[in-house]
Design a protein around this nucleic acid. Structure first.
Lengths: 222, 222
DNA sequence: TTATTCCTTACGGTATACCATAGTACAATG
DNA sequence: CATTGTACTATGGTATACCGTAAGGAATAA
């Protein structure tokens, strides 16, 4: 079992809760950090005295407050950690459910587990830890399901996702068409872009494009 | 000190954490519920055997899963609770920071405390409990600040918030104008609605109304 | 009181979005 | 090869959004 575990999570109560879960697994040393910067410092300090952490459990989003921050997100923390201690096992523990975001996290940083916050989270955390001990990757069932599907999703849908993102970024229909033309994407004409948007509005039952964006954000597509 | 406390919160880990915080206050009976419906059942059962809960700590949002739900949010739970046990003390414990939502919660249901989830949440929970014991209302500092300001905020801003909500709900400019006319709000003409939207776009540096909605959602205005 | 300012509204022109239709290119099929 | 079907595109008309201007009214200041 892991001996030294660091939890990076700003919510006080969650820290207490995760600590208790880890206690139940008989992990002797559990340290918490409420800021990414603190987490990195503690990792470095532990390395220096030759008592490195074996596992990092980190959230993705950290609230801003009065303190000045260098690292502002779990993703930045992970990147910094990989630079100083590449073999450290990492569990990401977050409410994030945008599959694109999670996939890129897995692909880019090769994290060891993704546990989605929710009702059964502490059971899942335990499972994740046991799975990692066997050098395998763990993922919450709901997310694993989505990950399996993500490869099946037709290219079209990915273009739809991009289209929604561009709309949310403030591009007009014609600008989007030009963007698609530059990138040499299929269905790049203004007419096709309009058709696509219309299709999405029907799909999501949106009356206006403003509502379409609101729905897309709500469903985590953007 | 309170003897019987019920926590309604879907996140397992937070339940554990809050439990520990309440233990530190020497509260003997702490029960948790991961569904609003369960919370209501437990409150009713406790009333029936004449051992009612003295305090409810509840989140606002509960994830949907396979289970069929009657009550789907903390707000609905609070409404139901007020019907069967109007004198029960209630602490709302949530990440919600939209001040309009919180204000309506306080005004409508007369909740006893609002604690915003964040770094110092468990300290705040303790403060909230001590304050409630003296029959006073508690509110997280950040929120209290906003509440003090909310009365100063010109009505205009509240109408702007509503306008953004209506846009996100899929109403067209003209429909919004009609809505404002029905409610007898100021600046209810189509022209004024257009000007308002334009002002908001300048304010938020949005190129299109789609982007405006995206930004408004991002900032928690909707 | 008049003058000034601010807010609201009406109106008109332009740009963009929306929608239907038809034409074209290309692949699959017989 | 012709035929069919599908996806993409072009085009034009209508509706809506966008933007400027000016008129009217209420509140305020001189």
């Amino acid at each position: 079992m892991f001996q030294n575990v660091l939890i990076a999570e700003d919510q006080n109560t969650i820290n207490k809760g995760v600590e208790r879960t880890l206690n139940e697994l008989n992990i002797p040393n559990v340290i918490t950090a409420q800021y990414c910067d603190d987490a990195l410092l503690k990792l470095k300090a532990a390395l220096r005295i030759d008592l490195p952490f074996n596992l990092l459990i980190t959230d993705l989003s950290f609230k801003a407050d009065h303190r000045k921050r260098t690292l502002t997100s779990g993703e930045e923390l992970i990147e910094a950690v990989k630079a100083i201690q590449p073999d450290l096992k990492i569990i990401v523990f977050s409410v994030e459910h945008r599959i694109g975001k999670i996939k890129s996290l897995i692909d880019t940083y090769d994290i060891d587990a993704y546990v989605e916050k929710g009702r059964e989270e502490s059971i899942e955390l335990k499972k994740a830890i046991h799975t990692i001990l066997e050098d395998k990757m763990y993922c919450s069932p709901s997310i694993a399901q989505l990950l399996r599907n993500v490869d099946d999703i037709s290219q079209t849908d990915l273009y739809d996702e991009l289209l929604l993102q561009l709309l949310a970024k403030g591009l007009k229909r014609e600008q989007i068409a030009n963007y698609f033309k530059e990138k040499d994407f299929p269905a790049r004409s203004l007419s096709s872009i309009e058709k696509r948007i219309n299709k999405l509005k029907v799909l999501f039952d949106a009356h206006t494009s403003e509502q379409l964006i609101a729905i897309a954000i709500d469903r985590g597509l953007i």
